[in-house]
Simulated assay, not measured.
Amino acid sequence: MERFQTVKFENVIPTEDIKQNADMVLNYANNIEKHIVNGEGLILSGSYGTMKTTLAICVLRKYLEQGGRGLFVPMCSMMDSLYSMKARSVEEWINYENRLRNTSLLVIDDLGSEDVSAPWVLSKVNSIITERYNRKKSIIITTNLTKEELAKTYAGRIIDRLRSTNYYISFTGKTKRVGLKTSDLRGNKHE
């Protein structure tokens, strides 16, 4: 995605409040081949804007640069694609789902942002995670949900599988995103 074209560890300067977390993610990335062979991943949990997605992309980029195969997908986009592709083209839908299930490293961004009120959504999430677990395929998950919220949302067996194969890193701190201030727009005001 365009927003992440230049994102790599060399370009990321973590703030003091996430430095230790960033170091743990970098350590995981530096040993990525071992983690991929063992089917081990990461769960990066915490408030929005704390660089979870950025660091997950850094890991994926490092793995891709080493010749690995991986896929980054925002959770809401994944569910939307699975729903709409099936209606458009069963073949396209099957190919996409196979990529989700079989790529060596799957980065799921923002787990918990999907609409879990639709009955098929949780079933599909459970199915993909279970198959990746059984095939020892690594997953990196970013989420704004706490451990408790994850446990309330997803089936216990799924949480147990993720817990047994993923390192959990909790991010704290304030958002690192910088927004525009009203004063920045005053010069462009139409009168």
Results as ranks from 00 to 15, higher is better:
M1H: 07
M1I: 05
T6D: 10
K8F: 09
N11Q: 04
I18D: 00
Y28V: 04
Y28S: 04
A29K: 02
N30Q: 15
N31E: 13
I32Q: 07
E33L: 06
H35C: 05
H35T: 05
I36K: 08
V37K: 13
V37E: 15
N38M: 09
L42D: 08
L42C: 08
I43K: 10
L44E: 08
G49I: 00
M51N: 09
K52Y: 03
T53R: 01
T54I: 14
T54S: 07
L55F: 03
I57C: 12
V59L: 04
Y63T: 08
G67Q: 10
G68F: 11
L71P: 04
P74V: 13
M75L: 01
S81L: 13
L82N: 03
M85R: 13
K86H: 10
R88F: 12
V90I: 14
E92Y: 10
N98K: 15
R101E: 06
S104Q: 07
L105I: 01
L106Q: 00
V107W: 00
I108L: 15
E114P: 01
A118V: 13
A118T: 11
S123V: 07
K124H: 05
N126S: 15
S127K: 06
I128L: 04
I128A: 00
I129N: 03
R132S: 01
R132Q: 02
N134I: 11
I139L: 12
I140G: 04
I141C: 06
T142D: 09
T146P: 06
E148D: 09
E148W: 02
E149D: 14
T153A: 06
T153L: 11
Y154L: 02
Y154D: 00
A155P: 03
G156W: 01
L162P: 12
R163I: 06
R163L: 08
S164A: 10
T165P: 02
N166L: 05
Y168M: 13
I169W: 15
F171K: 14
T172R: 07
T172W: 01
T172P: 00
K176S: 02
G179P: 11
S183N: 13
L185H: 07
L185K: 09
R186V: 11
G187P: 02
N188S: 10
E191S: 15
